[in-house]
Design a binder for these strands. Sequence first.
DNA 1: TTTGCTCCTG
DNA 2: CAGGAGCAAA
Length: 582
Amino acid sequence: MDPSTILLSPQSRTCAHLEEPCMEAGRSPAPQDLARVAPFAWSQVPRSGLADPDWFGDEHIQAKRARVETIVQGMCVSPGAPGPGRVLARDGPCSPEKARERKRKQSLPMQQGPPGPGPGQDRASRKGLGGPCVREQLHLLKRQLRHLQAHVLQAAEPRDPVQGPGSFARGRSQPRVQRQNGWCPSPWTGDTDLPRDSGRQLSEGAKHLVSEEVGVLPSGPDAGLQILREELTRAVSQAVDSVLQKVLVDPPGHLAQPDRSSPGQEHAPSGGGSCRDPLRMADPPLGNFSLDKPQDSTRYHGSLRRIPKCYQDPSANCPLTVASHIQGHQIVSQLLGQGAHSCWSAHPPQDMSSQSHAYSQPAPPPWGALRRLPSTLSQQPCSLPFPSTHLEHPPLLPPVKVEQGGLLAVPRAHPFSVVHISFGLNPGHLKKAKLLFFFTRYPSSNLLKACFPDVQFSRGVTSQMIKWFSNFREFYYIQMEKRARQAMSQGVTNPNLLLVLRDSELFRALNTHYNKGDGFQVPDCFLEIASVTLQEFFRAVSTGKDSDPSWKKPIYKIISKLDSDVPEIFKTASYSQELFRS
DNA sequence: TTTGCTCCTG
DNA sequence: CAGGAGCAAA
């Protein structure tokens, strides 16, 4: 008896939940909060200002404020001045109707955002956002700004040498600028069609909404500019948010999904729970390993096999072309939950190619990060609390014919990431396919397409990949048969004693083949499937069924039912690129 | 006919 | 790992 294949106790590993990146950072208002707060930022300023002793005690400032307010109020009733996106209007002596009208006008562009961006409209919406629409708004606001500046400069004559025009504003805004320097530009700004500078300004404006929505009374041209920036920021970021919220679904694999068709995967607490666990290694190792246990794996069959919950979810929130759930959720959660102070937001997508890991780890070698990730995946492939390290890895150009920007052609590619579509398969894809084999021995072509969003599938590519898996299986079954026969020759009688452990020779052979370099921690579920396979081969061989020319077929059938769900990370384009890179 | 699989060979 | 033959199912 070969002790290496006898499992006395299942290896159990603790469930190492990786912390969400940047969670320790102080939470800043989520965009919804911003959206809730921002429209009142201006009107709240005086109130907060009154509460501020510095502010309240300064009569000069008060006088100046009164003058500026008068000017602004005058502007708000001046014909033609207010327009869409007008932001300087505030409730005051203006008539209630006009005030209401202004409120409506100022809230419409922000709250409506892009008009009903549907799942398939994100591109168009974003174009509209970043393009002519925003430019027009910008233009309009600039005109208003010039208007305002003229008024302010007229009104605030240098009567006060200490606090000349803008001096107050500068005194107040200077530290603000300082803080702005530490502000991480919004990742979205870079994704719009706005000039990079505009994006930065917008982001800086957004920061005010976060950190200075109260307590400062903007005044003077600088402040006016700031206000304009803020409002522009608000409009754009809200629009982007709404697009995002429409486009990016709540990921099934990240949040609690109690009703998921494969609940065991979602909440596998540890160890062998990494995949659908047909054999529940919690059983004593010598317990029943008979194949009736995987009954629930029949769920994998049929049309619903491996269909992500998202596709089964009747919720309309799930667009047909689903972005990578995890990426999407990460983006949303980063944006919504961690918002302005998110490390993630410190790097616009465009910069990620040069700052790939900077936001999650100081400078981890790609493979190091990769290695840490799968080991987590192998424990919880479906809940996937993986580090953001892998979320937005820079798309790496494979040395094949590539094409940029095939977003619409890539169903699972993130709509906001630049995906380089490969028309062929590269070593990274092969590597990924091998790792995939740990989860699925018989991937459907749909699954393959889902797992290789950066590949433009053609008949040739599909068959090549199918061929790969065929080869993988071939090797796998050969090893199994070999080991089964070996066990038989060693006098093993109880097939249930045959288990594949990580330190067994069989595992080493498989690991070497599929996981060269051992950079990926093989999921426990694979060990379980391998054990089942080995036992089936042993049973067949020991009962003489191998005399039948097609004696392997029943085994194949059994094993084909034991495929596990593939971790979502495999469905991201950046993953194979990362593998290729390493 | 197409697709997918196994088996064999190089 | 790829190519090809052969088979079976859709």
